[in-house]
Design a binder for these strands. Structure first.
Lengths: 341, 341
DNA sequence: TTGTATGCGTTATCAC
DNA sequence: GTGATAACGCATACAA
C-alpha cells in the first residue's frame, strides 16, 4: 500500500522494472518475461505482474531496451522537405507516401524517426546507424541526392528509396516506370499532332530525368522538338512564375508535360494568363493523378502512380535488408489517364 | 595500426567509447567530454580524440546516452493521418505544418518521432513519455480527439496542439482565430446579399466547429439561413461526392463556406457539374490560402492562416513546458483574402 | 586538465 | 517456471 510509485530509497520519481518486480514479489527477469510475452511464465504470476504494472503506470524504458538489444526497431524516414518547401509545399503526393509508410511501420511495431532536413551526406546517415538511432532508412524521393545514395550503397547501411528505378543502381528502389510515363505522354502528344513540346521539371532529379528521357524517345520518333523548362523548385508558385516567364521569351508550345499535377495546374494558370487554354492551344499531361486533377478546369490528363501500396512495399524490402537478405528494385504499374487536356 | 575497429577482446564488431579512449590513449570520460564539446579539455587531446573517432567511424550510441540523461531530446509528433487519408490526402496544409515543425526541431537538435496512427487514448501517450520514448508531444490538428487531449492535460505530460484555441481548454494550443475566420466569411456573404448559406465541414473537429460558430454569428445578425453539409472525411473526393449529393436534395445555396481550399475546389467542381458557377450563382470562401487557390478557376476567396511561423511557435511553447514553465495559447493573425469567388 | 568509480533500466545467460 | 548476475555504452560526481 505504498501509495504511488514507490522506489528503492524514495529517491527517484520514476517507476522501473525493479520496483514492479518487488511489488509483484517476483524477480526482475520475470517481469521482463511477462512484458515481452514470453510463454515461460505461469498464468498466475503473469496476471499479478501485469496488474501491478498497470496500477503503477509502468512502461518499459525504451532506451534501456534499445541499448540492450541488437535492433532499435526504429526506421529513419527522409523527406526532401528542402525541394518541396521554399515558400510552400508543392504536392500532397509525398504526404500520401509518408502516410503509407507510417502505417506500414506501425503494423510492424517500428518507430518512425523523421529525419531532419539537411542530413545530406552519406556519412551522416552511416553515423545515424552507428549511433544506433535507427536500423535503416527510407528515402522518399531521390531529390538531387543520387550521388549520396550511391555512396551509401557502398556501405552496409540498409535502405530503400522511393523514386527512379535504375537497373544500374546498386540499391533497392521502388517507384513508377518513369521512362514509360514519359513515353506515354509523348505518344499522346503525337496522336494530337503536336510538334513543339515543352517539358517542365528539374532533370537533376533522377525520376524526372527519366520522364524527360521517355518523352524524348517518343518525340524523336515523331520528329518533334522538345524544350526544357527547368523550374527552380517544386513549389506551385515557382512553376507558375517559370511558365509565365517562359512564354514571354519563347513561342508557345503545343504540348506540355509537367512533372506533377500540381505543376500542371500552375502551367494551366500561367498559360491562361497569357491567353492560352488547353486542350485548344496545347495538350497537357501531368503526373501522379492527385484527386483534384480529375475535377480541375480543365480536367487534367495525367500519369498514375500506384502509391497506395508503396508504403508497405518499401517497408517490406527494407526489413528484408535489415534481416540480412538483399532486396530487388521494383517498378510499379504506370498508366496514362486521358482527360480533357 | 590495429586496422579497423579493434575492440576489447575482438568479440564485438561495433566501436564504442572505450575503444576510442584506448586508441587515443585517454580515459573514457575524456572522450565523452570531447564529444560533448566540454571546455575542460586541452586542444591537443581534443584533436587527437576527434581524429581517432572519425578514423574509426565512431558515433555515440544515442540509446545509451538517452538512458543516462534526464531528457530524451525527442519529440513525438502526432498527425491525424486517419481523417486526412481514406483514399487520398486532402490538403497540403498539414504537410506544411509538419515541415515547419521538423525544421524547428532540428534547429534545437531534437529528434522527431512521428507517432503511429491510431495512438488515440491519453494513457498510450502517457506511457510513451513514461517509457522515455519522447519528452513531449506536438499534435497537428485536434481532429476528433478533443476528449483525449483534455484527459492528457490532467496529467503532467508536456504537449502543444495546433488547432482551435479555446480559452476554456487547459492545454496550450496554437492556431488561427477560427471563429473570426467564420465571421469574416459571413460578413462577406452579407455584403454579397446572400441569404441561404451552406457550411461544408465536420463540426466534430473543434477548429471547424468554431468556424461554423463564427459564420453563424454573422448569419444570425443578417438573418440568413445556414445549412450544414457534414462531409464524411476530409478527402477531396468525399467533399465532391457530398456536395454533389447535397444539390440533388436541396435548393442551391447562394453562399458556401468550405473548411479548406481543397474542399472549396471540390465544391466548385460539384456545383459546376450541376450547372452552378461562382461567383455568379453563389459566393464561396475557403480556408488556408494554399498556393493553387489563387490561380484556380475561379480564383478562390479564402481565409489565411499564418503557418510559416507555426512550427517554431509550437516547438518553442513545448520546450517551455518541458523545462517546467507553463505556456499560454496563442491565436495567429487571421484574415480574409478576397478573390473571384 | 584528466582519471576512477558508479549507476542509468533493460535483457541474456546461466543456474536452480 | 523462476532467480542471481552480468553485460549494454554512456555521463556524472568526485578525486587527483
Amino acid at each position: 500500500m505504498a501509495g504511488k510509485a514507490g522506489t528503492t530509497r524514495g529517491r527517484s520519481m520514476t517507476v522501473n522494472m525493479d520496483d514492479i518486480a518487488r511489488l509483484a514479489e517476483v524477480s526482475k527477469p520475470t517481469v521482463s518475461r511477462v512484458l515481452n510475452g514470453s510463454p515461460l511464465v505461469s498464468e498466475a504470476t503473469r496476471e499479478r505482474v501485469l496488474q501491478v504494472a498497470r496500477a503503477h503506470g509502468y512502461a518499459v524504458n525504451r532506451n534501456a531496451q534499445k541499448l540492450r538489444q541488437a535492433r532499435t526497431e526504429t526506421i529513419a524516414v527522409m523527406l526532401d522537405f528542402g525541394s518541396h518547401r521554399h515558400g510552400r509545399i508543392a504536392d500532397p503526393f509525398v504526404f500520401e507516401l509518408l502516410a503509407g509508410v507510417s502505417e506500414a511501420l506501425s503494423v510492424r511495431n517500428q518507430d518512425l524517426l523523421l529525419s531532419p532536413p539537411g542530413l545530406s551526406d552519406a556519412q551522416a546517415c552511416i553515423d545515424l546507424i552507428a549511433g544506433r538511432a535507427a536500423d535503416g532508412f527510407i528515402f522518399l524521393g531521390q531529390g538531387g541526392r543520387e550521388p549520396m545514395l550511391r555512396d551509401l550503397s557502398r556501405s552496409a547501411t540498409p535502405f530503400v528509396v522511393w523514386g527512379a528505378v535504375n537497373p544500374e543502381n546498386s540499391y533497392c528502389a521502388v517507384g513508377s516506370d518513369n521512362r514509360l510515363g514519359g513515353r506515354l505522354a509523348g505518344d499522346l502528344f503525337v496522336t494530337r499532332g503536336a510538334r513543339r513540346w515543352l517539358f517542365v521539371g528539374n532533370v537533376e532529379h533522377e525520376e524526372i530525368r527519366l520522364r524527360h528521357e521517355g518523352l524524348r524517345q517518343a518525340g524523336d520518333a515523331a520528329d518533334a522538338s522538345i524544350d526544357l523548362l527547368l523550374v527552380e523548385h517544386m513549389a506551385y508558385s515557382a512553376v507558375y512564375a517559370g511558365a509565365a516567364a517562359w512564354l514571354t521569351r519563347h513561342p508557345a508550345p503545343d504540348a506540355v508535360f509537367a512533372f506533377s499535377d500540381t505543376a500542371a495546374m500552375a502551367v494551366i494558370a500561367a498559360f491562361r494568363d497569357a491567353g492560352l487554354s488547353a486542350p485548344d492551344d496545347y495538350a497537357l499531361v501531368g503526373y501522379n493523378n492527385i484527386p483534384p486533377a480529375a475535377d480541375f478546369t480543365p480536367a487534367i490528363t495525367t500519369i498514375e502512380q500506384e502509391t497506395h501500396l508503396a508504403g508497405a512495399i518499401l517497408v517490406e524490402k527494407l526489413m528484408q535488408q535489415i534481416e540480412g537478405s538483399r532486396a530487388k528494385s521494383t517498378m510499379l504499374p504506370t498508366r496514362l489517364i486521358v482527360r480533357d487536356t
